[in-house]
Amino acid sequence: MSMQALNQLVARSIIDPAIVQKFSSGIIAEVLSDLDFTHDLREKLVNLTADTWVEFAILAYRLVKSTEPVTATIDLPSPAEGLFIEETHVGKEQVA
C-alpha cells in the first residue's frame, strides 16, 4: 500500500509543480499527509535528507521497500523426499 502511495506521489510530481515546491520549502509533510502512509513511515519520509526531489524519491523508495513485506516464496518439497509424502505415509499405514 505504501509503495502504491509513493508511486502515486512520484507520478503526480511530474506534472504538478506544487509538490516539488513544497519539498523545496521543507513542507513535504503537507503532501504526505494526503497519502496512504503509516504514521511511522510518514515521519521517516519527512526526515529524509535529499538535495533534489529525485534524490528524495529514490531514498523514499528504498525506505518504503525496506518496510514492505517480503513476497511469499513457494515451498517446494525436496526432490529427495518426493512429491507425495503425505499419501505415501498414509499408504504405509493402510498396508500395516
Binding site: 512520484v10 510530481s13 511530474i14 524519491a57 523508495y61 528504498r62
Partner: peptide, 15 residues
C-alpha cells in the same frame, strides 16, 4: 531504482 522512477515518470503523463 532508475527503472522504478522512469515507470512513475511515464505514469504521471499517462494519468
Amino acid at each position: 531504482e532508475r527503472e522504478w522512477f522512469l515507470r512513475n515518470l511515464a505514469q504521471g503523463l499517462i494519468e
